[in-house]
């Protein structure tokens, strides 16, 4: 691996780290606007993180070492997953380290420990959050893998970088609308479910009837909470990146020239922020679904990814 590759990895890491709170801020701001509130500055999440890092954390006396270890594991596994997804340049230098399966399972590693941490404090809220997360995660994972595979087929590769690269330079069977369309809708639903957005979970509430992710992390405070929140932001960013770069990668740098990279950064930030706005608007248009109705939504996502596959094989012109 050359020095440039290494620099690119560092650049991508800081991009993800630096941009993810902004995405969260944008979505909050859009929601506030839609609800006729003034809303906080889009840079508010940065201040929140800085504040949380400085606060004294409280750890339950019931908890074991799993509880304080989880934020670090979650942070590192999510950030590692983000390094597999090309943001401003394709192919990514870390392309070789893992394909779509590795991405999904790296994210699952974080979820696994987060669910454990939810149970660790002994509070019923945490257990409830873990239990709900278990069912949502179980139902999204097959749909996620199938939808990513359907897209992988059109590119003839299961490496994310290769998919993005081939779509960006219009190589292979990328110009096949039905599979892409279906996979896009499926992946959008999955994004909402995986990142705890409105029809599935409500990130802005602490009501025990509705919360999933918030219930799991209820006992966290201080720097642990900061890491968990940051990781949640990065996960959101990973899914937004997948959506924009798999289905509309145009603008991403495919060569190593400074101008291409610069353009890549600009286009990427523009696209991700744009999609964040869409998600914010989308969240305001729907009410949160009852937990047992979420299965219908996720079932639909699964069927859509299945159809994407069917269409790929059968609609050969």
């Amino acid at each position: 691996m050359s020095a440039i590759d290494f620099l690119l990895i560092i650049l991508q890491m800081f991009l993800v780290l630096g941009l993810s709170p902004l995405i969260v801020g944008v979505i909050r701001r859009v929601k506030a606007h839609m609800q006729c509130r003034h809303g906080a500055n889009v840079f508010q999440p940065y201040s929140d993180l800085a504040k949380l890092f400085r606060k004294e954390p409280v750890i339950s006396t019931t908890a074991s070492w799993i509880f304080p270890a989880t934020p670090y594991i979650l942070f590192s596994s999510t950030l590692a997953a983000s390094l597999l997804v090309p943001t401003i340049i394709a192919p990514m230098p870390l392309n070789f380290a893992g394909n779509i399966i590795a991405l999904v399972y790296l994210l699952a590693l974080g979820t696994f420990f987060l669910m454990l941490a939810g149970l660790d404090s002994g509070s019923a809220f945490g257990g409830m959050g873990s239990s709900r997360e278990a069912i949502v995660a179980s139902l999204t994972e097959p749909a996620l893998i199938l939808s990513l595979f359907a897209v992988a087929l059109t590119a003839g590769s299961a490496n994310i970088s290769a998919i993005v690269y081939k779509t960006a330079i219009l190589q292979g069977i990328v110009l096949d609308p039905p599979p892409h369309l279906m996979a896009l809708v499926a992946l959008f639903i999955i994004t909402l479910a995986e990142t705890g957005r409105v029809p599935v979970d409500n990130p802005a509430t602490h009501l025990e009837l509705t919360m999933i992710h918030e219930a799991m992390i209820l006992e966290y405070s201080g720097r642990y909470l900061a890491l968990v929140e940051w990781a949640a932001g990065m996960k959101l960013m990973i899914f937004l990146t997948l959506l924009v770069n798999i289905f509309a990668p145009w603008g991403i740098a495919t060569t190593l020239s400074p101008s291409a990279l610069g353009l890549g950064v600009l286009v990427f930030v523009g696209k991700v922020v744009g999609l964040a706005v869409v998600i914010g608007v989308f969240e305001c248009m729907f009410a949160k679904l009852r937990l047992f109705r979420v299965t219908e939504l996720l079932g639909a996502a699964f069927i859509l990814s299945l159809l994407a596959l069917v269409f790929f094989y059968i609609l050969r012109v």
Binding site: D176, P177, P178, L181, L304, L307, L315
Partner: peptide
């Protein structure tokens, strides 16, 4: 034919939406 396929796919999608 891409476009025709796309439209037919959309037709099918709406079917699923009705079922759901």
């Amino acid at each position: 034919s891409y476009l025709v396929n796309l439209c037919s796919a959309l037709l099918l999608l709406t079917c699923f939406a009705i079922v759901a």
